[in-house]
């Protein structure tokens, strides 16, 4: 999965400036950067919730040219191959936890209901919520809601899971329960792209780090080099020290 020479503007503000990135399969890519840097826009472009003005998007053998109209088939293909997890969970409030998870498999993938339910129950065990199948989203804590959202995206069997600041709305102890689930999924070689402000988590989970600032890619490489005080550039050092207690 890769983006090439992508540009995106909102009004007169250019949020992505000719960026090119690739996201290796079976690995965890973490996007970091200050607020408003464009990292969420990159993530949303991968699910085509945002459509950049120019550039290309390659997924396996499919190439999408952002400057042209995207066909329904291509859009459907990309949406199916990439699952999205939002900062504000966006669970369907009128459905139970189980119904939230089986909705996509039944409506979109046309799976049989018993199969979808069986799969959903396995996913709920995986995210540690097997006792909440019949609860409604309003009855869940934020951490539980986000774990359901993760299960919902996994139920579509996507090749990549895209997570947009999945824990920034959560209290620290609830954040930890979500991060643990993500670490476990990462261990299973699930391809992921995560936008996060939590550098400790990034260090732990990432195979690759991308640092974005004002729509430019400042860093794109290994975790070790990103955090190594000897090799990283001054701007990254400044960013890391503003986010942690490290001097």
């Amino acid at each position: 999965m890769k983006l090439e020479q992508v540009n995106k503007t909102f009004g007169s503000h250019q949020v992505l400036k000719n960026i090119s990135l690739d996201f290796p399969r079976g690995k965890v890519t973490v996007l970091v950067g200050p607020s408003g840097s464009g990292k969420s826009t990159i993530l949303r472009s991968l699910n085509i919730l945002e459509k950049p003005e120019t550039g290309t998007y390659d997924f396996d053998d499919l190439q999408i040219d952002f400057s042209k109209e995207i066909s329904k088939n291509d859009l459907f293909y990309i949406r199916q191959k990439t699952g999205m997890v939002f900062q504000s969970y966006n669970l369907f409030p009128h459905f139970t936890v189980l119904e939230n998870i089986i909705e996509g498999p039944i409506q979109v993938l046309k799976k049989k209901r018993p199969f979808a339910i069986k799969q959903a129950k396995e996913l709920l065990i995986k995210v540690g919520l097997s006792d909440k199948a019949n609860a409604y989203p309003e009855q869940l804590s934020g951490g539980q809601a986000q774990r359901v959202a993760i299960a919902r995206s996994l139920a579509m069997n996507p090749e990549y899971i895209l997570l947009d600041e999945p824990t920034s709305a959560l209290d620290p102890e609830l954040e930890l329960e979500v991060l643990k689930v993500l670490l476990q999924i990462a261990k299973e070689q699930q391809s992921m792209v995560i936008v996060t402000h939590n550098l400790a988590f990034a260090k732990r989970v990432a195979d690759k780090i991308i640092f974005v600032e004002e729509g430019n890619i400042i860093y794109d490489g290994s975790v070790e080099n990103f955090f190594d005080p000897d090799t990283r550039n001054a701007r990254i050092s400044q960013f890391i020290s503003s986010m942690t207690f490290e001097n």
Binding site: L49, R79, G83, E103, G104, V108, S153, M156
Partner: peptide
Amino acid sequence: EAAASIGM
């Protein structure tokens, strides 16, 4: 967005 992201 959530519905679109699961391909509905």
